[in-house]
Design a protein around this nucleic acid. Structure first.
Length: 417
RNA sequence: GCCGCCGUAGUAUAGCCCGGCCUAGUAUGCGGGCCUGUCGAGCCCGUGACCCGGGUUCAAAUCCCGGCGGCGGCGCCA
């Protein structure tokens, strides 16, 4: 058996050298012990292999597993490919902590640390599980353009891009495109980056983040959308519980299964709950970050870690959400432990109503012509959602910053690496 | 954009409030020595740092001003 990786730990105890090689197949390290008496050449070789050395070894599973840290092998041959030119700037076994800033800078190295790698293996599982779920439920995976002419909101901040002689933007949401596709493919999903030019600098925001976006046609109400979303998340959690036992153990995370359906409260009920706790939300305004956190605490104390807030007021939503007669909309948010994980709802699919909505929001229907056109030819009622991958990962693993949940961070002040 | 906290060896920190006892402490890393299985092994020796610029002062890591950078709160925000 040939195993390759990097030395993450070397320990010499008298006439034994113990090497730990960062695992490629498993999250736990591969361990080889070399004894002076048993394999004198390898012992000499291993004795001055610095941490960080890239190597492969030929070996077999050790009959006696003495290491408590990883799987132990008996090495027959070691081939060195590359030695570090200087000592590693960060500790790849996690003995000495690194600040977030340092972790981001040296992420590529820190992934040799099983704990750091475990986060991203679970991130991968989220996407894998999502794909599996969508495939099982008859969704088609799509890709929509990331260079676009208009944003979904009109008001939100977009990154301008020079596109030959045109002004273009980086897409902040596949929203409009997936809706257009509802006129022909009633179940689509996309795993996509979102680009947002807001100058925020918080543990919850990134300027380039990833989302799992879905859109569903022929629905009766937003309830059908919420159904897909809650089942998707429960599926993801199950998948991780099943496939990432080792990673969860390394991270010390106990992930409890989620039961569907999730609790639902209306926006009005949320405002009332908050009001009874002394937090006032002005009429027609969205929940503030602090209010959302507080609501999360209150709901958690009632046994609801995860819950939907439904029927948002029209004033606090995008133009494309379907309006109810009472001034509420069919928009919902999904909150998990005080953080908005996802938002979605039923869209307005009736052409005239949509034009009216654009005007009511002070937007010019001319600018959305390409989008509106799609509503002329038999658009079914539909709805969808966007689910933030980093936020989901943060909440599942109890991380404290979304920057821990993405390999290469793009935030207010980071364009490198 | 506003507010708060912070910036010390490769990494992580102590010292700063109350200037001199700092020739800057500790852990880990790194180099070397001892040790036949460590589990964040242990013991000994060595190595290496006050973000940048200006000011106050006999004296600045410590106080003041400016800059740059980080973290957090708020705002803004699918």
């Amino acid at each position: 058996m040939r195993i390759c990786g990097w030395v993450i730990r070397r320990k010499t105890i008298g006439k034994i050298v113990i090497l730990e090689i960062s695992g490629d197949t498993s999250s736990k390290p591969h361990v080889i012990a070399l004894k002076k008496e048993r394999e004198p050449e390898l012992f000499e070789l291993a004795r001055d292999l610095p941490v960080g050395t890239a190597l492969c070894f030929e070996g077999e599973l050790a009959p006696v597993q003495k290491s408590r840290r990883g799987v132990e092998y008996i090495a027959k041959e070691i081939k060195i490919y590359s030695r570090p030119l200087e000592p590693l700037p960060v500790d790849t076994i996690g003995k000495v902590p690194a600040l977030l800033d340092t972790r981001i800078r040296y992420r590529y190295l820190l992934l040799r640390n099983p704990a750091e790698k475990a986060i991203f293996k679970i991130r991968e599982s989220i996407l894998r599980a999502a794909r599996e779920y969508f495939i099982k439920n008859g969704f088609m995976e799509i890709q929509t353009p990331k260079i676009v002419a208009a944003g979904a909101e009109g008001g939100a901040t977009l990154f301008p891009v020079k596109y030959f002689e045109y002004n273009a933007y980086l897409s902040q949401s596949p929203q409009l495109y997936k809706q257009m596709l509802m006129s022909s493919v009633p179940r689509v999903y996309e795993i996509t980056p979102y680009f947002r030019a807001e100058k925020f600098d918080t543990p919850r925001h990134l300027n380039e983040s990833w989302g799992i976006d879905a859109e569903i046609g022929f629905i009766e109400s937003e309830e059908d959308v919420m159904n897909v979303l809650e089942n998707l998340i429960a599926y993801i959690v199950d998948y991780i519980r099943k496939n990432n036992v080792e990673e969860l153990e390394i991270l010390g995370v106990e992930l409890k299964p989620l039961t569907v359906p999730f609790k639902r409260i209306t926006f009005k009920e949320a405002v009332d709950i908050l009001s009874s706790e002394g937090v006032e939300i002005p009429e027609g305004e969205d929940l503030t970050e602090a209010a959302e956190k507080k609501l999360g605490e209150i709901m958690a104390s009632k046994g609801y870690d995860i819950f939907f807030i439904t029927r948002f007021p029209w004033e606090a939503t995008g133009f494309y959400y379907m309006r109810n007669e009472d001034g509420t909309t069919r928009k919902f948010d999904l909150d998990y432990k005080g953080l908005e994980l996802s938002s979605g709802g039923q869209r307005e699919h009736r052409y005239e109503k949509l034009v009216e909505a654009l005007r009511d929001k002070g937007l010019n229907p001319e600018g959305f012509k390409f989008y509106l056109e799609a509503f002329k030819y038999g658009m079914p009622p539909h709805g969808g959602f966007g689910l933030g991958v980093e936020r989901l990962l943060v909440k599942l693993l109890g991380l404290s910053n979304v920057r821990e949940a993405i390999l290469f961070v793009r935030d207010r002040n980071r364009l490198i690496p």
